[in-house]
């Protein structure tokens, strides 16, 4: 039933017990944020802005 995955998978986990989101781009770049809009903007801009990582 599950479709196959392609190579371009983005993942955002809401870290248990916190208000923090942890995002992993398909290229492996990571970031934490507290705002899903900001997180998607960062991810989908791949690779632009990956260097100015905020943790």
């Amino acid at each position: 039933m599950s479709g196959e995955h392609t190579a371009e998978v983005y993942r955002i986990a809401w870290v248990a017990g916190t208000d923090t989101l942890h995002g992993v781009c398909h290229c492996g770049a990571e970031r934490t944020a507290r705002d899903p809009v900001e997180m998607w903007e960062w991810m989908l801009a791949h690779p632009v802005g990956h260097d100015r990582e905020i943790t």
Binding site: G3, E4, H5, T6, A7, E8, V9, Y10, R11, I12, A13, W14, V15, A16, H26
Partner: peptide, 13 residues
């Protein structure tokens, strides 16, 4: 309960 979200851009899922 917190959620995990995954987007597969190529598959549109």
């Amino acid at each position: 309960t917190p959620i995990v979200t995954e987007v597969d851009e190529g598959a549109g899922t």
